[in-house]
Amino acid sequence: MARIVLTGNLQLHTEGVSELELDVNTIRQLMRQLSTRYPGLPADFEDEVAVSIDGTIYQDDWFAEIAPDSEVHLLPKIGGG
């Protein structure tokens, strides 16, 4: 099971839960499971977040792979100048 860490303001929508373990293989599966488990998450929350999988940051990539022992952080999306 991957370790999922919610940062920023996400835990306001997850009943205060900031860490959990999920059986997911991709970011798409992660987003679906989070939306199902926490219906209070905004419908467009996945457009607002970046996903760090074992330190590598992914943005807008549903099919990036998550390993069973991965550490996954959800962060605010990163822009730049």
């Binding site: 860490v5 940062t7 760090s52 074992d54 330190g55 590598t56 940051i57 550490e71 952080h73 962060l75």
Partner: peptide, 11 residues
């Protein structure tokens, strides 16, 4: 491998 101040471990 260090945990960054904003969460993830650094690559």
């Amino acid at each position: 491998g260090s945990q960054s101040s904003y969460g993830p471990k650094f690559p």
